Amino acid sequence: MNNQKTLSVLNDLLNITNDRIQGFSKVEDKVWEQYPLLRADYDTMVSQSHTMKNQLTNLITERGGTPDQSGSAAGAIHRAWIDVKNSFSADKADTTIGNVVYGESAAIDAYQDALDSGDLCPESSRVVLDQLHQLKASHDKFENLEDLKN
């Protein structure tokens, strides 16, 4: 197992988690009127994201790496696209929730790719797998919008 590859994969996941946190800040107060039952799940997702960030940061540091606390270029482009899309959308709540689902799907794919790469040490794999399960659970809650309306 190459420690540099492990650190690279963990930093990629940290960037995705940072993107997730920044993306959630764009959701603030845009959907609560139409989806009041979503607020508690959203707050849980934000809290989980910060915990995930801390876990990844610790794994990187324990392996002698330097955590990259930025987000990815792709995440910045996606957030800019969300802003443009929301400015033209009649139903900003549905558009915003749809973007959350899209972002969660992309994170799930990246986490699965990280696990499939074989570049993670056993401890890192356990943490990443646990985080993947959390991502899938939050994705599933947001996927069925009609169940969340008033």
Rank of each mutant, 00 (worst) to 15 (best):
M1I: 12
N2C: 09
T6E: 08
T6D: 13
L7N: 01
V9Q: 00
L10K: 02
D12H: 11
L13C: 04
I16W: 00
I16H: 01
I16Q: 02
I16G: 03
T17Q: 09
N18Q: 13
D19H: 07
R20Y: 07
I21T: 05
Q22K: 11
F24Q: 11
S25C: 04
K26I: 03
K26G: 02
V27H: 02
K30T: 15
E33T: 14
E33D: 12
E33L: 10
Q34W: 03
P36Y: 06
P36H: 06
L37N: 09
L38S: 04
R39C: 05
A40R: 12
D41T: 15
Y42F: 15
Y42Q: 03
D43V: 13
M45S: 12
V46M: 13
S47W: 05
S47M: 10
S47G: 11
S47K: 15
Q48W: 04
T51I: 14
K53N: 11
K53G: 05
Q55M: 08
Q55R: 10
Q55I: 00
L56V: 03
L56S: 01
L56M: 05
T57S: 12
T57R: 03
N58L: 03
L59A: 06
I60F: 01
I60Q: 02
R63N: 13
G64F: 08
G65E: 06
T66R: 08
Q69R: 08
S70V: 04
G71N: 07
S72A: 15
A73P: 03
A73E: 13
A73V: 12
A74I: 10
A76S: 14
A76R: 15
H78C: 04
A80W: 09
W81M: 12
D83N: 12
V84R: 06
S87K: 10
F88M: 15
F88W: 10
A90C: 08
A90S: 13
K92R: 13
A93H: 00
A93W: 00
D94I: 00
D94G: 06
T96F: 03
N99C: 09
Y102H: 07
S105M: 07
S105Q: 11
A107R: 01
I108C: 04
I108W: 05
D109C: 07
A110P: 01
Q112C: 05
D113G: 07
D113K: 14
L115P: 03
D116P: 11
S117R: 09
G118E: 09
G118F: 07
C121W: 05
P122H: 07
P122D: 13
E123G: 06
E123M: 08
E123P: 04
S125K: 09
V127E: 03
V127I: 15
D130K: 08
Q131S: 13
L135K: 08
L135Y: 05
S138Y: 02
S138K: 00
H139R: 12
K141R: 14
F142E: 00
F142M: 08
N144T: 15
E146Y: 12
E146P: 00
L148I: 11
K149N: 05
K149Y: 04
N150V: 13
